[in-house]
Design a protein around this nucleic acid. Structure first.
Lengths: 316, 316
DNA sequence: TGTGGTAATGTTAACGTTAACAGAACAAAA
DNA sequence: TTTTGTTCTGTTAACGTTAACATTACCACA
């Protein structure tokens, strides 16, 4: 007990003893065991973060935002990912809760029934991030992906692109929202829609592959809007290979505003999303909950920004 | 106890009772608590993976390799990262061990003295990954970064590049090894070396910035070898902006062979590294250790592949 | 010398699960 | 009916830490 005290409340232990204890701990290389404390208090001082993928640059930045807040507060981030599979997500939720995480940050609104139930009964704060249009009863922090895609499509339409195609990849909630926004904008202008989709994750090479395919299937295509920057960039490379001029022949727009999109040639048209801010806000919200203050708002909707770059036609 | 048994050894419980128990668990949304088991057995069935960064694509693929092996074996991956700071690394090692991870995968050979001691006394298998030339006493799985950089430099020299500069970023062990290899190759050809470095992480925009700077500082530069593909790609964009022809005026080589490097124009010269394989092998090794079989080899050195692409001059 | 008070150290129980053992229930054979 | 054996269910203790309470040590002052 005295040892425990000399670590937690050093001033309650006499100087001599404290020094002897510290020396002994150093010599032994003692590392406190968190299991008993977690067991007796059901508090792990760890926050679970459950994301679809770590490979996706977008989520890496969300994590950075989360940790920038949790770290100074003394909370450990416990990362898990589920590869866009609802079944794996269910398992991950169970695992995180079984480790007694003090709160959970998740990134999708559609779950298996069992997962849904676990989230409801978790007994710890749960926050859903990324898409603000979600209908889930949880606290939500994100952007309006539907509106963002609609805006971007309208921007391309305004600049003379007509036969615009949507490149999707993994069909998660957010991508479905983007497709909806794209379809709304096209419908408003009386144009028909074409969506390329796959079960595979988005990547540069998938973008290139999609471009090759769409030229076969819809040679009239003069604009493409992608669910992620990497698809758009891969597609631009494929255009360059085939001597298709971007944006004159085909306009190209991405989503998220990754570092490369803002360094490449032509500069990519893209929707800049506040990924790090989403992570930061989610973490702040959780800290508030854990400190007993109920968060003010059910849903926090952040702004996105349409960046026109050089890969869509310029405004006449 | 019967409940516990009906979960772990269902056939030891009568059918009726098992069904009643299952119904009750379902209704309650019961999630087993791992803390007591961790406490009493000092086994968490979780493996700690400690990487410098999650933002770096390279490590995302290592993680995929690790999980592809651990997941089917029923082990949970517990990810942590330390942003290239040895002090943070020390804290992370302590945290992971305090959660009773059953083994540790780390990715650097230089640690604080305290971290070093913790690793020695961890009482669980520790494997160091990424660089096989490490002098640490741990089990090591990686590639020879020094030889890889030397080979790539020599390849560029063979193809007529002379004033080759090295673009580094975060100065971790691996980057230092690459610089060493570059310097060896240059010295063998009686050429002088120039290394650009920074504390910042590598990125596309950093590559562009480095290129602008090197043109000022060393206008005679006719070749660049980078510690990571993103630097090289950023530098190529900067060249395109300035109408510098790659590879005619400046040859450019990256490291790792990321997806984009193999889709872009010009195809990037790069060293293709077996990142996923490193993760897989490390995980397999750990499973072996945990099953009581001592692993065969102290150090496993994997092969890399020099990919010449189109961003260095072609062989005459 | 004793008394009162404070500072320092010690004791106990609790957290939830499971291994190991103990006991009960039941069926088949004597 | 009792005995034997098997199948099922119950009891206990252990894991390491810390909150809460209990005790001891020490010093100042009467």
């Amino acid at each position: 007990m005295t040892v425990s005290r000399s670590i937690r409340n050093p001033d309650q232990v006499s100087d001599t003893l404290r020094d002897r204890i510290r020396a002994a701990l150093d010599e032994l290389g003692y590392i406190p065991n968190r299991a008993p404390d977690i067991l007796s208090k059901s508090k792990s001082h760890a926050i679970g973060v459950l994301l679809p993928s770590l490979t996706n640059q977008v989520f890496a930045e969300v994590i950075r935002g989360v940790e920038s807040v949790l770290e100074p507060e003394g909370y450990q981030t416990m990362l898990a990912h589920f590869g866009y599979s609802k079944e794996v997500e269910e398992k991950r939720i169970e695992t995180l809760l079984s480790y007694n995480v003090d709160a959970l940050i998740i990134s999708d609104s559609v779950h298996t029934p069992k997962a849904q139930k676990m989230l409801e009964n978790a007994g710890v704060p749960v926050i859903e991030i990324m898409d603000s249009t979600s209908s889930s009863p949880l606290h939500i922090i994100g952007i309006d992906n539907c509106a963002a895609a609609r805006d971007m499509t309208q921007t391309m339409l305004d600049r003379g692109h007509r036969n615009i195609v949507f490149f999707a990849a993994r069909m998660d909630t957010r991508t479905l929202q983007k497709i909806k926004g794209y379809q709304q904008a096209m419908a408003q202008n009386g144009l028909k829609t074409v969506v390329k989709e796959t079960e595979k994750a988005s990547s540069f090479s998938l973008g290139a592959q999609f471009l090759d395919e769409i030229l076969q299937e819809h040679p009239e295509t003069d604009g493409i809007i992608c669910t992620n920057d990497d698809l758009a960039i891969g597609a631009i490379y494929a255009c360059q290979k085939r001597n298709i001029r971007v944006p004159e022949q085909i306009g190209m727009a991405g989503f998220h505003g990754l570092d490369i999109a803002r360094a490449m040639i032509p500069l990519l048209a893209t929707v800049i999303t506040p990924r790090e801010e989403i992570g930061r806000l989610a973490a702040k919200n959780i800290i508030q909950c854990l400190n007993g203050q109920p968060p003010q708002m059910q849903t926090v909707q952040l702004d996105y920004k349409i960046e026109c770059g050089e890969s869509i036609r310029s405004n006449k």
